[in-house]
């Protein structure tokens, strides 16, 4: 007889015990789609600040990751684009937020390397551009590549459509984006799910993130849009 899996469902306060000032945090989302809005709001309420954020962008003004921008909680961000949020652009120009740009596909590969035990990746993206500065160029079979190093975070905040109580996850449409890759690349993974179901309710072949990657689950809210 197999044992009953332990539930990882916790209160938002219990989840916030693992979010602290100065941490490196991966926050998924494309513009404001697939962003863990519930967890972001809770971090702001708790007073978490000085964040080193790894994300694709910063949502839009005052929404999603834009809430952290508005409340001055981010000291540095690694991302591919800030253009969708005018407030981020203003704060970067004013020197209030440091930004390190990395091409979107490279961002994905660096996180994958961080989560999959790979020491770096070779990509042709960025060759001959400012992205090449300070990086090793490696030639393989006559083709040149940039060596890009892994990204890893203390905490990843994930937005899922459905989760079972042990953290097996399913995402919806383009809200999937950076969620599954970020769930692999952090020491501690907190999920907010729009719907939490009993273990065994999700079809094993449809699960997009294996529950063994997830540490905690809280009840989330549906994606709000842009």
């Amino acid at each position: 007889m197999s044992k009953l899996p332990k539930s990882k469902v916790v209160t938002i306060d219990q989840a916030m015990e693992h979010c602290y000032s100065g941490m490196t945090v991966m926050i998924p989302g494309f513009v404001n789609c697939g962003v863990p809005e519930t967890l972001i709001k809770a971090m702001i309420e708790k007073g978490v600040t000085d964040l080193d954020v790894i994300s694709n962008n910063t949502s839009v003004k005052g929404r999603g990751i834009g809430r952290l921008v508005h409340e001055n909680r981010i000291k540095h961000i690694t991302c591919s684009h800030i253009g969708s949020n005018t407030e981020t652009v203003e704060k970067v120009v004013a020197g209030e937020i440091n930004v390190t740009f990395t091409p979107q596909g490279t961002l994905c590969e660096r996180m994958r390397a961080g989560g999959a035990g790979i020491g770096g990746v070779l990509t042709p993206t960025g060759l001959g551009t400012p992205m090449q500065e300070g990086k090793q160029v490696i030639e393989v079979n006559g083709k040149k590549y940039l060596l890009e190093l892994p990204l890893h975070a203390d905490v990843a905040l994930i937005h899922a459509w459905k989760a079972d109580k042990m953290g097996n996850l399913i995402y919806r449409r383009t809200a999937r984006n950076f969620n599954p890759i970020m769930a692999t690349a952090a020491d501690f993974v907190i999920v907010e799910a729009e719907e939490i179901v009993e273990v065994g309710m999700l079809e094993p072949d449809y699960i997009m993130t294996p529950g063994c990657l997830v540490d905690m689950i809280v009840q989330g809210a549906p994606t709000e849009g842009k």
């Binding site: 694709n56 994905c108 590969e109 919806r172 449409r173 383009t174 999937r176 994606t223 849009g225």
Partner: peptide, 29 residues
């Protein structure tokens, strides 16, 4: 119906044609 989980590259809701599919950013790139 508008589905905020399905957006275009500008973040605005789109629609999916029959046979269309969604995947992660990692797969996308």
């Amino acid at each position: 119906p508008v589905d905020f989980n399905l957006v275009d590259a500008s973040g605005f809701p789109g629609t999916l044609r029959v046979g269309g599919c969604c995947f992660s950013s990692f797969d996308s790139f």
